Amino acid sequence: MPAGEFRQPSPPLPPPGSEEEEAWVWTQIKSEARRDAEAEPALASYLYSTILSHSSLERSLSFHLGNKLCSSTLLSTLLYDLFLNIFSTDAGLRSATVADLRAARFRDPACVSFSHCLLNYKGFLACQAHRLAHKLWTQSRRPLALALQSRISDVFAVDIHPAAKIGKGILFDHATGVVVGETAVIGNNVSILHHVTLGGTGKFGGDRHPKIGDGVLIGAGATILGNVKIGEGAKIGAGSVVLIDVPPRTTAVGNPARLVGGKEQPTKHEEVPGESMDHTSFMSGWSDYII
């Protein structure tokens, strides 16, 4: 900073879920977009059309998703109007979007800004698009919900059935190859890496997919099959195949997965696996493998 220049400090981040949080995050996104447009003129038009020309986060996100998911027969203007109407009338969806932005920004060290997540993180975008499809599903607009699911899968390589229920503060990290079945339920503050499957078994209907508790961390390539429960704060190791319930605050690793010990209740919210993104702290309890 040049000598004598005074820079106004950034206001503190409002508490999660507060009424001020959405406005604060949107202000941050616009500030970041202006900074990036000045630093990289090649992106100025793109940043203006996707962020700076809009008056709210829901308008910006509706425009961006509409352009991402449109096709020759599913027009971007139609999707924009559809998405904006849903976001504008559902405060819960807007709150979930902000919680997901926070999840990416503060859990993923590769996420350099809120605007970077909004524009470029396909896991975040796929999750928001799923929330819209789920809303349509609950409104009995199922053909449109399924059409959106197909477009989300085509564009983002993430296949989530529109009936699946997903909480707030979700991080789909990298996201490629994530599959979530019809009756799956994902709690709050869950982090899921790429190529994770929450699938069913057999060809029968009914409640047949996993139930993921709050604060769970699921490693890359993990497969969880059937109507099993993954308890609050549990970890599923990368590449594991889980066919049975996993108790709260317990780690499951291997194929088939085995339990490798529990953990005391975290003393801080940040220590919950879905928040901390700690994949390896359990290793000393079961392995003598040393590099």
Rank of each mutant, 00 (worst) to 15 (best):
P2W: 08
A3I: 07
G4Y: 13
F6S: 15
P14Q: 11
P15N: 01
P15H: 04
P16Q: 09
E20K: 11
A23R: 15
V25Y: 11
S31H: 11
R35V: 06
A37Q: 10
A37L: 14
A39E: 13
P41A: 14
L43N: 07
S45M: 05
L47R: 02
T50V: 11
T50I: 04
I51S: 12
R59L: 13
S60C: 14
S60M: 04
S62C: 11
L65I: 13
L65C: 05
G66P: 02
C70W: 02
C70A: 15
S71D: 13
L74W: 13
S76T: 09
T77M: 08
L78F: 15
L79M: 08
L82S: 03
L82H: 06
L84F: 11
F87K: 02
S88M: 04
S88K: 15
T89D: 12
D90H: 11
A99K: 14
L101C: 01
A103F: 03
F106Y: 15
R107G: 14
D108C: 05
C111E: 08
V112P: 04
S113C: 05
C117S: 09
L118H: 05
L118K: 03
L119K: 01
Y121M: 05
K122T: 12
K122V: 12
K122D: 02
G123Q: 03
L125E: 08
A126S: 11
C127V: 13
A129M: 08
R131C: 02
L132K: 02
K135H: 14
K135R: 14
T138H: 07
R141I: 11
I152F: 14
V155Y: 06
F156W: 06
F156I: 13
D159K: 12
I160K: 02
H161S: 08
A163Q: 09
A163I: 07
A164K: 05
A164D: 12
A164S: 12
A164Y: 01
G167R: 13
G167M: 10
G169Q: 10
G169L: 10
D173F: 00
A175M: 05
G177I: 05
V178L: 15
V180H: 03
V180S: 03
G181E: 05
E182N: 06
A184P: 09
V185H: 09
S191Q: 11
I192W: 07
I192T: 01
L198E: 01
L198D: 04
L198M: 08
G199N: 05
T201Q: 08
K203I: 06
F204G: 15
F204H: 14
K211F: 10
G213F: 10
V216Y: 12
L217G: 06
I218K: 06
T223H: 02
I224P: 07
I224K: 00
L225S: 07
L225E: 11
V241G: 03
V241W: 02
I244G: 04
I244L: 10
R249A: 04
R249T: 11
T250K: 05
T250F: 03
T250D: 10
V253T: 07
G254W: 00
G254F: 00
R258C: 02
L259R: 01
G261R: 06
K263P: 00
K263W: 00
E264C: 00
K268P: 00
H269Y: 04
P273K: 13
D278T: 08
S281P: 04
F282K: 07
W286E: 03
I291V: 14
